[in-house]
């Protein structure tokens, strides 16, 4: 269908190009990338430096200092066990970032491999793998993660496992879709004409084209994983006390909401800032790399 129309339209795309160019620049992608990168950079700095600089221990209870409001000594106050909230926040940043990075990496490797296999393997391989992808995508993500983490037993490691298992299918879809569309492009056909073997075709022409969409997906994914992990910890399935983790800090603070609102505010803002950072970065990268952008529904699943 589309082929027959493109076949006859000559290159009078000057006007269209102009309009497209206009739109792309109008999105201020650089601002988004810079802002998002800045937020994430700051966060990484806090996670690295914070614990070193802080005079407090994140887990030692100081009962006489319970529920103190923000002050010079405790810029974000103390919690119900007298621990410094700011210090716990910095340690929590380590947990969140490490967890998000680990789970994203597993998803990425697993999903990309499956996607590549499905797109380049035989028809049967494709059918089987894509059914697997369909099955994974049929599960509500957080529920599946919740059940896996619950069955394995509550711990941070199991949260990583659970969140890795549920998210890889989106990568598989994106990679397969990209490879299949690139495969039809004339430059790949040319390459086939001079007898390029399959593995070199993948390396030379296909892989470079999946890097960008996968990178964008991964950046956006980091944010959703931070959210999901915080949710699981909030429910009591992730980090176990006394580990400092943002989600469980909110769970701990909920009973003191009226008297010590900073207990839920600080970790909440931290989670939000992290996710905003990753989202800005991901959106910015997407607009830069791939104006046709990924289906929004692929990133929506936890």
């Amino acid at each position: 269908m589309s082929k027959s129309t493109t076949e006859l339209v000559p290159s009078n795309v000057g006007l269209g190009g102009l309009y497209r160019r206009y739109r792309r620049f109008a999105l201020h992608t650089n601002t988004a990338i810079r802002l998002g990168g800045g937020v994430i950079g700051l966060l990484v700095l806090v996670a690295l430096v914070g614990p070193v600089v802080s005079p407090y221990d994140p887990t030692t209870q100081v009962l006489e200092m319970r529920l103190r409001g923000p002050s010079l000594a405790h810029p974000l106050g103390t919690d119900a066990l007298g621990r410094d909230v700011a210090t716990r926040l910095a340690y929590g940043a380590r947990v969140s970032l490490a967890l998000a990075l680990a789970a994203t990496l597993v998803r990425l490797v697993l999903g990309t491999t499956v996607g590549l296999l499905a797109a380049t393997g035989g028809r049967l391989v494709d059918i089987l793998l894509m059914r697997l992808v369909d099955i994974q995508l049929a599960f509500p993500g957080l529920v599946l993660a919740l059940v896996i983490a619950g069955v394995l037993g509550p711990s941070l490691r199991n949260v990583v496992i659970a969140l890795s298992i549920v998210g890889w299918a989106s990568y598989a879809r994106v990679v397969r879709g990209t490879v299949l569309s690139v495969k039809e492009r004339p430059f790949v056909q040319s390459a086939m004409l001079y007898g390029t073997p399959w593995h070199r075709l993948v390396k030379r022409h296909l892989l470079p084209h999946i890097v960008n969409p996968v990178l964008v997906l991964a950046t956006l994914n980091l944010g959703t994983i931070v959210l999901a992990a915080a949710g699981l910890s909030y429910l009591g399935l992730g980090a176990q006390p006394p580990t400092a983790e943002w989600g469980s800090m909110i769970a701990d603070g909920r009973n003191y909401m009226r008297s010590a609102p900073w207990l839920i505010t600080a970790p909440g803002v931290a989670i939000m800032a992290t996710v905003i950072g990753f989202n800005l970065l991901g959106d910015g990268l997407r607009d830069r790399f791939d104006p046709d952008h990924l289906d929004d529904r692929q990133r929506r699943r936890t």
Partner: peptide, 21 residues
């Protein structure tokens, strides 16, 4: 952007804090 990035349990508590408490 803020809406997408906010953990919903946290938003729940904020709403409880403001509207209920």
């Amino acid at each position: 952007l803020v809406g997408v990035s906010m953990p919903n349990f946290w938003l729940g508590y904020l709403l409880i804090l403001v509207c209920s408490l």
